[in-house]
Amino acid sequence: MSAADISTEPTRRPFTGRRVRFGDVSLQLVAGAAALGVTVLVGLIVWKIVDGSRLAIVKNGWAFLIRVAWNPVPGRELYGAASFLFGTVLTSFGALLIAAPLSIGVALFLTELAPRVIQGPVTALVETLAAVPSVLIGLWGIYVLGPVLRTSIESWLHTVFGFIPLFGDPSAAGASIFTAIIVLTIMILPIVSSISRELFREVPSELKEGALALGTTRWEMVRGVIFPYARGGIAAALILGLSRAMGEAIAVTQVVGGSPTIQWNLFSTGDTLASKIAAAYQGAVTSLQLSSLIYLGLVLLVFSLLANLVAQWIVRRVARKHGVTRGGHV
């Protein structure tokens, strides 16, 4: 009781005038400056890449995009991006084609099928796959995966479906567009599956139970409830996966072989925008060659910006539709 007796009369403290708090203002300024800095950084990236490729743009214009050429010999210099664009599109879409069903399968397994005890470990393992550095996947791609693919799947596909131009003669080296596709598949699989998993988890359980209560099988519930609900999100996940596949330089450089031609044969060597840039790291001979390399980077940057903006647009639209709002803050 004694402590309660030492009561102090509450005192009123004056508060006329809004005090400008040094702490508040400085934290807001510093944090705001950081946020502004990030925005400026993105702008600077775009500007610097455009600036660096200016010489090539002036010399070549749009023709650069449809020309198949990469000749850095001074005097006879001629550059074009067409073969790299072709290789980029072929490898990234090829990878997406394989990775999409695989990732969605993994995500469905994790959300709907996996027994509780293995859910956690399997999630951890799949996410660990995303953490494996691309240079290691590439190393593994050249010396382990490439030779195996050449002697097994590639030669089998060639024997059986050789009449389709896509399945031509396997290249002797083991490096091929097909190896690049598989390597990219491995790299985007964990990304797409972890986004899809989050999407499937967000499907309200009342919806799922509602479908199951009608007497549907689990697969019918997935098709009828989960897929329609998560459709937009899955599209965004696939676009992000595609963008990641387009931008991957290192692993592709290691396994694709690097030949600046357009070939429909998946089992021959090729090249992509990103891998062409990476392979040129030891230096360019002329300023036009350097500028052309940066031009390739510009094309890549435009692709990835577009892909990301579209994906984010979808995500935000879906979030609005489902009434998901970001937690409000004080």
């Binding site: 925005t39 940066i294 980077g297 890549l300 892909a307 903006l309």
Partner: peptide
């Protein structure tokens, strides 16, 4: 409104390929 702009910028930056970041710093 600024919050959604900045989060978009962060997402876009996260999507820029590593190799492009490399040549950006190279040029810069």
């Amino acid at each position: 409104p600024i919050r959604s702009v900045i989060t978009l910028v962060i997402d876009v930056l996260a999507g820029v390929p590593a190799i492009v970041i490399g040549i950006f710093v190279f040029v810069l």
